[in-house]
Design a protein around this nucleic acid. Structure first.
Lengths: 339, 339
DNA sequence: CGTCACAACGCAAACGTTAGCTCAGCCGGA
DNA sequence: TCCGGCTGAGCTAACGTTTGCGTTGTGACG
């Protein structure tokens, strides 16, 4: 019914209100201090309303050299941990009147550079969020010094001076203290690849927390996958003196580890306490629901957007650690140390 | 080092090559049949290369009234089922030289219309993908008849004539046949809300498959949540004559249902066989890994993009069912019927 | 009554592309 | 030799906004 045929332009509104386009423009996005008669303003506003006028973002983008769009480069749309971050970023961006375009860095050949070309060099975005940058990507520095502001979230890009991270060390420390408080003395950490700074910080916090009470935890490394978690946990259980409490680096490892524990018929939490980093809906529905540390992922996304927009607005790049504390969600996989 | 200060424009390339901008434009995105001397063409091309020229997407968008951008409206970034769809859409869009902007319809107040305004009415996108539209949204018809093409994926919008769906009925039928093949005679389906067409088709296929062998399955409805799955499964188990095989509508329900089964100390698959719709990494890591039907979600996303771009290119809207067959991933939760 | 300041708007040039039209040469054929 | 057609470009007007500047008209003030 409504003549959707051609969306109304500034000119249409101007004609309808009997004024010039420039006046309409000023009234519509003037911040109040435009000198225009109240009566004229009213006329313009109602005309705009009736014609359902919406400013064309593309034309405005061309004129203002700013698109109202942010890019989000994610390592994998597969990993469920990403969604709260994406969501957090999306929500805040939306709130602040920006839209988000997606790009995926699958790690294959040149996908990151391809994304960079398509988004940054073609002028589609005002700022770029890089989530968990693939470490060692030689183009990262180029991104950081490129024509549009960018911010690295979760995994930092060392030396870039524009990282938004979480209190990973506190998470590790928190888990260590939880274990120690339950009387455990032989702790272990199933760590991920420690060239990931986020993984390294978790480990450091855990180790530090244990040492503060004169305990040296065992640390083993494994990839962040189910298979690796399975293998690493088997290794731990086969030891002469097996640990009584294990902190697992992420949910995927944890799923594998739990399978290994089940296979070995070790009882949780009577004989072994488990904590997993990254809370996930699944944690609630394993045979024994697993205690997990919930990171402020949503806040990570939203503050990353804030920090980025600060840069877009002309602010200097800076490193930020999101304030929110990691939270330990205690379920049934942790209990007092065996006697 | 490279003077990122100001990205090269068409004009810069023209000056460098000693020709007019229009010639550069023609050479750069001409499809070959432009009449220009090979020598000139060469000169332009190398100049563009040296200046690292990239066409400005915004300016081009304004001129061509086409943005090279597609919108993706998703119901929730939380639901993990969405990610393969998003990924599929993203991949194909990227392949076909489109970028994807995200919008979330949280279901609160006016988020869908808000997204519509920001994306469609402000002219940011050339087409809109609507994933699992919230049923009953009064604006859906407006979307369908709006100024930019749109396509509904997964959940159809009845009568819109632009739905991309999967072979849901075949999925249901396949599960029924699997059960029947194992000798089960008392089947049940834990269905979702059947006002969702996708849920209804699954159910119909299941029922039909059972009836084809003269068995009338029990169908109960519950919300697509863990709690509802838990409750519904309790109800089934409490029955005088409990079913020996249950087809569960989605992964969330399944997690709740599995918890109920565990609590009731019913052995799977000895006493009860379970199949869950929607395969998920979790399925592998439950105490007894659960047989699931894997839907071609990635294909759903990619063909939705194809169908949409067809419309964008001027093609008439149409309904499409993605060809790929649902696949039954047999795990340990299904076995022969108890004697 | 002349001048001046200021309010209230119009004009036009940009932003970077693209495409229809124009136009100068040049070659071939009558 | 003249004309027509073709090749290889250039010119220019858009696309829809924004904004610095120019131009009116009005009231106040000396």
């Amino acid at each position: 019914m409504a003549d959707r045929a051609r969306p109304a332009r500034l000119d249409d509104v101007a004609r309808a209100a009997g004024v010039h386009v420039s006046t309409v423009s000023r009234v519509i996005n003037g911040r109040g201090e435009v000198s225009v008669r109240p009566e004229t303003r009213e006329r313009i506003l109602t005309a705009a309303q009736e014609l359902q006028y919406r400013p064309n973002a593309i034309a405005r983008g061309l004129r203002l050299a700013t698109t109202g769009t942010l890019g989000l480069l994610v390592p994998s749309l597969r990993n469920p941990v990403n969604s709260p971050i994406i969501r957090g970023a999306f929500d805040r961006a939306w709130e602040r009147n920006f839209v988000l375009v997606l790009a995926e860095d699958t790690g294959e050949s040149e996908t990151a550079e391809d994304a960079y070309e398509r988004l940054v060099e073609e002028g589609r975005i005002d700022g770029l969020l890089i989530q968990s940058a693939r470490i060692g990507n030689p183009h990262l520095d180029a991104f950081a010094s490129g024509p549009v502001p960018c911010v690295f979230m979760d995994r930092a890009h060392p030396g870039s001076g524009r990282n938004v991270t979480m209190r990973d060390a506190d998470a590790g420390r928190m888990v260590a203290e939880h274990f120690l408080g339950l009387g455990h003395r032989f702790l272990a950490h199933l760590a991920g690849p420690v060239d990931l700074d986020t993984v390294a910080r978790r480990r450091d916090g855990f180790v530090e927390g244990a040492r503060a009470r004169n305990t040296e935890p065992l640390v083993v490394q494994a990839a962040l996958s189910e298979e690796a978690g399975y293998g690493a946990m088997r290794g731990l259980l086969d030891q002469a003196a097996a640990p009584t409490a294990v902190f697992i680096a992420n949910i995927n490892q944890a799923l594998g580890a739990v399978a290994a524990v089940r296979e070995a018929r070790v009882r949780v939490p009577e004989e072994l306490s488990l904590v997993c980093h990254d809370d996930d809906p699944v944690c609630d529905f394993l045979d024994t629901p697993i205690t997990a540390v919930r990171m402020p992922l949503h806040e990570l996304g939203s503050t990353a957007v804030d920090v980025l927009l600060d840069q877009v607005g002309g602010g200097a790049p800076r490193n930020v650690v999101v304030e929110a504390e990691p939270e330990l969600v205690v379920r049934r996989s942790t209990g007092p140390a065996p006697p």
